[in-house]
Write a protein that binds this DNA or RNA. Structure first.
Lengths: 148, 148
DNA sequence: GGAGTGGTGGGGAAAAGTGGGGAACTACCC
DNA sequence: GGGTAGTTCCCCACTTTTCCCCACCACTCC
C-alpha cells in the first residue's frame, strides 16, 4: 500500500468538516472502510490514522504494562483525544470540536500526507512551527539519516 | 474487538446515574451483555470493565500467589470496591455511592475510553491530575514508545 | 464546450443525552 | 403484623446534537 504524501490547503466549514484530498483517499486500503481514527498529534497538529493501521497501533498499546504510571498517562492522552470518523458522501470528515480547538483551526486546514497517517495543521500554526526549527533541512537530514 | 477510546463530559444526575457514550456502547462485545464490573481505578478515578474482559482479569488474579502479602492486599482492594452494574434502557449505569465519593464526582463526569476499560473521572480531579504530570506529551511518548 | 471530478455549504431526519414520574421491593418502626 | 418511608429500577417524554443527503460552484480533461 502506497503511503500518504503531498499537501493541500482546504477550508474547515462551520460544522468542523474538512475534505480529505482525493489523492489520499485513493491511497486508502479498502480494509480501512473509509474510516479513520483521529487524535491529537505531536506538536500542535491532528493525526488521522486509517482504521487498518490504527488497529496495529492499538495492539502496540495493549502490549504496554498498564501497571506503569508513565504508560498509563501516555495511553490516556492519546486515547482520550481519539475519535472514530468516517468519510461522508463528499469525501469529508468532521473534526471533533475539542481537536479543532487544540489545533487552533480557524477556517483553513493544511492537510499533509505522512506515510501511514495524515496530519492536519492550522496554516498559521504550521508557519510558526517551521520558523521555530533551529536547524535547516540539510543538517536535520544528516542527523536523522546520517547514522544509517 | 476495537478498544474503547474518546472522551466525553456527561452529567451525573441526583440518582447517581451517568450515560455511557453511544460510541463506547457500540464497541461493547455482545458477550458482555451490557454489564460491567465497576471498581476503584488507579489515580483518583473509577474503572469500568465489560463483563467479558473482567472474567479474564479474574483469571489473572487467581494466578497470583495468595501466600504473598502484597498480592492479597492488592486483590482485596480491587475486589472490595467492585460491583456489578448494567446499562438501563437509556444507556446509563448507576454508580454506587461509595465510588461516587471516592472519585469526588459532583454533578459532572468525564468518561474516557482506554482500550479494555472505561475510566470515569471528576473533571476537576482530572485537571489536577494533568497539572501534576511532570513531562509533556511528546517527551512522555518518546520515553514510553521510543524504545520499541 | 460539455461532461465529469473535486471541493463547499446548508437543511432535515434520526439518534443520543437529560430529567422526571411511578411501580415494586425492602427495611424499619410502630 | 401492618404501615410507612426510603430506595431501586424501569419507563416515558423532551431537548439537543449529530449525521446523512441534496444542491451548488469551480476546475480540469476530453
Amino acid at each position: 500500500m502506497a503511503g500518504f504524501k503531498g499537501q493541500a490547503e482546504y477550508s474547515v466549514d462551520s460544522k468542523g468538516r474538512v475534505a480529505i484530498p482525493a489523492k489520499m483517499r485513493n491511497d486508502l486500503n479498502p480494509a480501512a472502510k473509509n474510516t479513520f481514527t483521529i487524535t491529537r498529534g505531536f506538536e500542535q497538529c491532528i493525526f488521522l490514522y486509517p482504521m487498518d493501521r490504527w488497529g496495529e497501533m492499538e495492539d502496540e498499546f495493549r502490549e504496554l504494562n498498564m501497571f506503569n504510571q508513565g504508560a498509563r498517562a501516555f495511553v490516556r492522552t492519546i486515547l482520550r483525544w481519539a475519535d472514530e470518523v468516517s468519510l461522508d458522501g463528499q469525501g469529508r470528515i468532521s473534526i471533533p470540536k475539542r481537536l479543532v480547538e487544540f489545533a487552533g483551526l480557524d477556517g483553513k486546514a493544511l492537510i499533509i500526507g505522512s506515510l501511514d497517517h495524515i496530519e492536519i495543521w492550522d496554516p498559521d500554526v504550521f508557519d510558526d512551527y517551521l520558523n521555530e526549527q533551529s536547524s535547516d533541512y540539510e543538517s536535520l537530514a544528516e542527523s536523522v539519516m546520517g547514522v544509517l
